[in-house]
Amino acid sequence: MAVTTQERAVAAKAGPDRPATLIWLGLGLIVIGQFMAVLYAPEEVTMGNAQRIFYVHVPSAWVGYLAFAVVFGASIGYLFTRRRSFDLAAYASTEIGVVFTTLAIISGSVWGRYAWGTWWTWDPRLTTTFMLWLIYVVSLMVRAYGGVGSQAARFAAVLGVIGFLDIPLIHLSVVWWRSLHPLPVVVRPEGFGSGLHPAMLQALLVNVAAFTVLYVALFSVRRRQMAAADALAELKNEDHRRAGTQWTVGTQEVS
């Protein structure tokens, strides 16, 4: 397939293509991690094989929180410097964070079906994670409908700061709320953090590492894509300029 000069220009502006290695590394680690989860780690005594979903659940939740912490940092960076690169980092990380938080909620719900006999319970941790998920889904809405120019980026950055600082308060209030109505006596998630079998811990750690690498890989791919989209839009504008046509800035009228 022939590559045009414009395509080369876009690729050059988007930056070098490094993420491929990271993706393969991440996928390889996940395969190893999941093998360990199924074959290496022993079966949990009370919950049986259903517990093995935690080798997906815990790393997903970890990546979700990691991604939102990155959004928080990048948002502050963007608000102070107005550098596009911070904005792209926040945007990419929001998307990935939402995907992994969704995965964490679904896997937690499936596990809850076996452990607690119900798909959903208002456990403080689940509730906080769910509220978190909502906040960042709204952030994607702000990105989509937030308006012209830099406005959507600014708004999403403000939400990225507010949302992250809100998490501890949401958790505190949910804990207090549940304490008035104690949970039915079931196996709590805290139950298996203590006395974790060494092989379980190893499998978990490998999976956490694998998911983290995958996050970094996806993050670089997405950022590169966004930078390429920017470069493309820039080229189109330049093209219009050279052709002597008049173009629009945001919502302003074309003369």
């Binding site: 596009r84 920017d230 800035v249």
Partner: peptide, 8 residues
Amino acid sequence: KAFGPVQA
């Protein structure tokens, strides 16, 4: 002044 990819 740049608005995203648009140079104003």
